[in-house]
């Protein structure tokens, strides 16, 4: 039932993508986002699309899974497209005109690419982060990357610890929710019928015990952690240390190169016209 919900949709595996250091993947994800927002013509979009396909291919995660991951954002995609179609004014005559609505060819092209941009964004970041990185190593990676912020007084370790405890207790709380739900159902509580207001009200006898027990858990956990000599990151060592290997450096270098290429491909054509075939098609400014 609800315990089937997997958090962040992590798919365990042994691909290169899985093995990369989480920090490498976070950095590459940020570079990718920059690249995706720089992309403004078919050639750069094509390049990023090829990268996305290669990522999916080496992660050994099936295309169906990736497509399923896009489903939840279909509405946003649709909205983006409609906005772009109707708000873009292009050169020349509109494709068709109706009342105050004017649709240009440019608008349609733009809408398609905007949607494609969102899809690339989702696919690449989820390939790098959620699908191939366990939540806990993601937390470790974030902690390590944000460590410099400690200098200006940001409690990085505390945040990372909070994150990992939250992750640790999600399955426990789901289990507890089921238990309480069953207990209330056995006493005649009804969670699934009635008006929205009634159903929301029915959740109160579920939420109150859950919150109370969470407080109790928190207190007990804090005591147990104190008993195990926890005192923040003071003089603390780690069993698993993140280590950047050759493959991490290679991937980082490759990503930096690709980013440079994409930025060049996005900026260059408009500053110095190059004489190549299909120029108008490849460098059509979106």
């Amino acid at each position: 039932m609800i315990s089937d919900i997997t958090l962040g949709q992590f798919f365990p595996g042994y691909s290169v993508l899985h093995k990369l250091d989480p920090r490498t993947k976070i950095i590459i994800a940020i570079l990718s986002i920059v690249a995706i927002f720089f992309a403004n013509n078919p050639i750069t979009f094509l390049l990023i699309t090829i990268i996305a396909v290669i990522l999916i291919w080496i992660s050994r995660i099936s295309f169906t899974v990736v497509i399923r991951g896009i489903k939840p954002i279909l509405l946003i995609l649709l909205f983006t497209m409609i906005l772009n179609i109707f708000m873009t004014t292009g050169e020349g005559d509109p494709l068709f005109e109706f009342w105050i609505i004017r649709v240009y060819t440019h608008g349609i092209i733009r809408a398609v690419f905007m949607a494609w941009r969102v899809i690339l964004l989702i696919v690449i970041t989820s390939m790098l982060l959620t699908y191939t990185t366990s939540p806990i190593s993601l937390t470790d990676g974030l902690e390590s990357l944000l460590l410099p912020l400690k200098l200006i007084g940001v409690p990085v370790h505390t945040f990372a610890m909070m994150m990992s405890i939250a992750l640790r207790f999600i399955p426990t709380l789901i289990e507890e929710t089921e238990k309480i739900m069953n207990a209330q159902k056995s006493r005649g509580a009804d969670f699934s019928t009635g008006s929205l207001v009634n159903r929301a009200k029915a959740l109160i006898p579920l939420l109150i015990p859950l919150i109370v027990s969470s407080f109790k858990r928190a207190e007990e956990l804090a005591t147990a952690m104190e008993c195990r000599c926890y005192r923040g990151d003071k003089n603390r060592t780690k069993l698993v240390k993140l280590e950047l290997r050759t493959r991490d450096y290679l991937c980082l270098a490759l990503s930096a190169l690709l980013l440079a290429a994409i930025i060049l491909g996005a900026i260059l054509p408009y500053n110095m016209p190059i004489n190549i075939a299909f120029y108008d098609l490849l460098f059509y400014k979106i």
Binding site: I136, E220, C229, L239
Partner: peptide
């Protein structure tokens, strides 16, 4: 309550929690 004593999402990392706090070498 065993649930409220376990800190980490992986068994060995949980066992390591105490020694990590003691600042022992890896």
């Amino acid at each position: 309550n065993p649930d409220n004593q376990l800190v980490a999402t992986v068994v060995e990392e949980d066992v390591a929690f105490g020694p990590e706090n003691l600042g022992l070498p890896r």
